[in-house]
Design a binder for these strands. Sequence first.
DNA 1: CGCATGATCGCCT
DNA 2: GGCGATCATGCGG
Length: 191
Amino acid sequence: MNLWELPTLDLAKELLGMKLIHDDDKGTTSGYIVETEAYLGPEDRAAHSYNNRRTARTEVMYDEAGTIYTYFIYGMHVCFNIVSGPVNKPEAILIRALQPIEGIEEMKERRVRAKTEIQLTNGPGKLSKAMGFTLSDNGKKMNEENIRIEEGIELGVHEISSGPRIGIQYAEEAVHYPYRFWIKNNPYVSR
DNA sequence: CGCATGATCGCCT
DNA sequence: GGCGATCATGCGG
């Protein structure tokens, strides 16, 4: 089975427990993905690509699954996403939280404000900072450059929860769609 | 070109 | 629970 051929909602669940790895000049940082959110293109009011909106920013969402989509939000945070679905269907999965594995000391240096290890990566902006993801990662292909996905923990369906997405109050009917997925009882999940 | 807004975080009460 | 920070992006003029 090719991971990147999965429908977006399935991929969002499949990514849980997998290992996300970043190599750069500071070394390697990695973590298990413990929380994701799916954004389903044209019909999903919460998605940047709602109604097939196509701009310089959303362009990578139309690319092939496994392309990396990073964007800047609230004047200070980077969010890290993986494009999914067929080419020209602008869907993506936001990585919302990680459980750190490697490079924890480097993460602490990058996340000076974090008081506990949990706070290093328990939110989309936090994990980007801890892992060293930036806008320059936008458009990279997963597993072709310095950002990789590997098998991690195998999860059963009963270990996964779902619920409404966070921070999309403007999205009208899409507000309640259960497109957020997380590993049950994992302490690194946001909120 | 100006300006409103946001897939958040951290600090304050 | 509330709010200010701070700027890339998108859209209107």
